[in-house]
Write a protein that binds this DNA or RNA. Structure first.
Lengths: 208, 208
DNA sequence: CCTTTTGAACTGACCAGTCGGCACAAAAAG
DNA sequence: CTTTTTGTGCCGACTGGTCAGTTCAAAAGG
């Protein structure tokens, strides 16, 4: 609610130039700290210090701690959605093969942006960030859901499958496993994890 | 840190009597508020007020906000572990059928103790609660893992399956879906959700 | 009586947000 | 070319308020 910030529309999405740099540094510092301590426990002073920036700069760029966090969520969700959309766009043998690629892409995303993934998992269901959750559901879960529907149409998955629930299930499964791996079993090879999850989804898990 | 709290070992697990009542009320109030606002944002004053208890009582019973929260986590994890263990103990046609029962039990638990489930999901990977996480892994995930191993031994699941990863996967999948259902689709019948998840796990999802 | 709870006052630390000012580059004026 | 102005990004001390935890005398309970 400051009169400042977002003053220059010249740089459009604020990605370029000095200011863009500062914002990236603040996102990074904030997500790291919030992943460790939680949103409320993370002070703006600490974020500024880790980013190598004065406290005033945070408010100059974002107006409030909440706005910084909202921007951070949007930014990360956009990256995740892009990563999944790209994986879905790549040519594959079948819709189910595309699903495998989505799982791998999500695993890789968490591997690379672990702190963001933890923040996402922790804050996903907080009422305060409704807007961001909505974006997550349409842009990220939407990718899963579309691929699942395609697989149903192609006859690869059972007709009448509740694709919305299945999409959430796969997303949550991958997120949980990937975060656990990063936290407790970092040398467990990503491909092994991917193989196990894919088995689970395909039903190749069954020995019958 | 405080010299007070945990004074009487007479009531052992502090479940009975006047003091036990107070503790239960405090657990409930705390878990509700923390689910909504997060740990740090929830003040002891607010917890005491919602529990209908004086602030001093919180510190008389738990010694600190942190100890209250640690007790709350332990308490909830124990309940969850009990619920799953009971489901696993019930007679069933096969290990895989037991797995289905576990999923249903977990769904029901989240349905009943939604706020706790949200707190668990949010705080699960925070370094501060290492001890509780360890208990979660041995007592809750352990139930899943044992059933999965049994299914492997019975030849119902593929030999060599990474049961540890699979256990985490199923647990995270169910937790995510159940919380999403509670938050956004409360009238979606629990049994439908259960059916979809069970299909996913069994591989009956495949139409081939 | 001994345990538990109450309620209110107090402290000391901590924190989001503010504000006046600095640095610097590029444009405008001379 | 030199000087002045302007806009932008950044700085960091400061403020007003909040909160965990303490203390304690008195009451309730069993």
């Amino acid at each position: 609610m400051s009169t400042r910030g977002e003053r220059t529309e010249r740089t459009e999405r604020g990605e370029r130039g000095r200011r863009g740099d500062t914002r990236q540094r603040l996102y990074r510092a904030a997500v790291d700290l919030i992943a460790e301590q939680g949103y409320t426990a993370t002070t703006v002073d600490a974020i500024a210090e880790r980013a190598g920036v004065a406290k005033g700069t945070v408010f100059y760029n974002f107006g409030s701690k909440e706005a910084l966090f909202a921007g951070l969520l949007d930014h990360g969700i956009e990256r995740l959605a892009d990563a999944l959309a790209e994986a879905a766009r790549a040519p594959s043998a079948s819709p189910v093969a595309t699903l495998d690629a989505l799982v791998l892409a999500q695993l890789r995303f968490v591997d690379e942006y672990g702190p963001f993934a933890r923040v996402l998992l922790a804050e996903m269901w907080r009422a305060a960030w409704q807007e961001a959750v909505l974006r997550l559901r349409t842009s990220v879960l939407g990718v899963y859901e579309r691929v699942l529907e395609e697989a149903v149409r192609a006859g690869e998955l059972r007709e009448g499958l509740d694709t919305a629930t299945a999409a959430t299930a796969v997303f949550g499964m991958v997120l949980t496993v990937a975060i656990e791996r990063r936290a407790l079993r970092p040398d467990h090879p990503l491909d092994d994890v991917h193989a196990t999850l894919v088995e689970l989804i395909h039903g190749r898990i069954s020995g019958r």
